[in-house]
Amino acid sequence: MSKNICTLRFAIAGVLASLLMAPAVHADTTLLNASYDPTREFYKDFNAAFAKHYKAQAGETVTIQQSHGGSGKQARSVIDGLEADVVTLALESDIDAIVQNGGKIKPDWRARLGNNSSPYTSTIVFLVRKGNPKGIKNWGDLVKGDVKIVTPNPKTSGGARWNYLAAWAWANEEFKGDQAKIKAYIADLYKRAPVLDSGARGSTVTFAQREIGDVLLAWENEAFLAGEEFGKDAFEIVVPPISILAEPPVAVVDANVDAKGTRKVAEAYLNYLYSDEGQNLAAKHFYRPANRAVVKPELLKALPDIKLVTIDDPQFGGWKKTQPEHFGDGGIFDQIYKPAR
């Protein structure tokens, strides 16, 4: 019996040793990109493309590490010391939070890159079950009959705020700016959400895998991705005639790149998002490229032109006004949303 224990010990020691000696990745430069949830697949492709490009152009090997999470959580981590070289988040206000808390990013970040530092944009569309059994075509259809919606929590999720604002933009047009009617519509909408996940990806899984709800309010790219992952015959994408223009911004984390000496490669990384290859990759992953002219037409076919309201539209007045007014403590969302008991 003691012999058995001995062999067991050797086996365990062997396993441990082999794990410890797992090949470490060696590279000249390492970048850490702190991103939000639905960009996982896009950045996987883009990182490979950039590494190849940089090797050819500058002769340096660069390895890009990825960290994904809710946009707000990622911003918080960078504020608390996560050594990200670049942030590619869902909301301008999340990058502003880094500017305001500790100042790791300089306040002029938005003007440094083209298109307000948003190399790609997106919008909110509907993902419905095959055949669209509830006949959902537009935002008004979401509050008809017994329709149940799936959306993440706007308090924690960047994507969820865009969902909310897209619905608001439709209601604003529909009710000609009547605040009481808009709020009643939004309240009715959130009454139909059986769960509010904390992030966009969680909601997609809730809708697609756990089969809860009739319609998922989702990022356009997330909706397409879910279609691909779970089979095209399971879902349909409905693009409403009006939605919101989401501009997920990117920025170099000044304090971190200066401390690590990675500013040059970090800036090259973000600039490459605007290159022809970066823009085509964005479109391939169903983001709306900032520069449509350089993108292959067949990739653009999936992203039809619709009326897109921006956050700077007078009804919202930019993130700095919208964030506290709608999503702050005691804001409009807190007033209209009462969790089901």
Partner: peptide
Amino acid sequence: GNIRGQTNTLPLHIELLYHDY
């Protein structure tokens, strides 16, 4: 900090894979 291949423990890795479909 959820850095892939860097600071993920097994339980965090499980969540990550699950959310990666």
